[in-house]
Design a protein around this nucleic acid. Sequence first.
DNA 1: GCATCGATCGGCT
DNA 2: GCCGATCGATGCC
Length: 274
Amino acid sequence: MPVRRGLLAGPVLDVAPKLLGMVLRSTTQEGTVAVRLTEVEAYDGANDPGSHAYRGPTARTEVMFGPPGFLYVYFTYGMHFCMNVVAGPDGKPSAVLLRAGEVIEGLDLARTRRGHPTEEQPAFNQTAPAALEQPHAARKETPSIRGEAPDIRGEAPDIRGEVPGGGGVPGVESAASGVRQGPVVKRPKASPDRDLARGPARLCVALGIGRAANGIDLLAKHSPIQLLPGPGYDGEPSTGPRVGLRDAADRPWRFWIPNDPTVSPYRPHVPKRR
DNA sequence: GCATCGATCGGCT
DNA sequence: GCCGATCGATGCC
């Protein structure tokens, strides 16, 4: 059973650390992947210059202005998705960015999505990197949050949305088909399982989450993405500044499980150069 | 391990 | 037009 909505309705600085040790489980046509959350950041809406909601609602951020327990997914850097759990009472646009987790279910699928080689599917024989959501996918109007189940519609229940061009990549067999005689066949370096969901965009890839997941209710019984109590975390979380923020960079609103290897490294904001 | 850099495009000023 | 709640590759220590 998903967690109770009331658990997420409090002040975001209280809610964020509570998410540590909880489990996020995502099911698509491809299968199920679940992670135990190890690192999060709090974003306090109108009081927080670092929040996307700071300047008031827009089409992109409207989910955050609704009730807690819904998913806010955004696209950034022209290629990555990140996700937040909406927190606080209805109307207050606070949210918790999910930054990292440990894959505890669906390890093989997570590896495939992240471009890892496996026994059955060597990396050099893969189709497009686990079919990340394509930015060019036809826009769908933002789901109206309350009530209706967002977006997924009659389409394939793949949370990521369509992949234009559809199928495999031509010419992939070349590398694999070669008569391999030499002792060593070079393959892309597989990052360790530790890195599968280490970082907010990697976490989205591992769970197969893209634009179509925006506005999903994580607490609904039949939701394809659910927030579950999991083992929780009893200890005292570590805290520190949030990663990569220009504004409000000093607020120590990042929370993580101490010494957990899946927690992402801290990086300060770096101004673009030209 | 750490620093730097390019990719790539949507959202907002 | 600017720039990001990022990542992976590369080069160096």
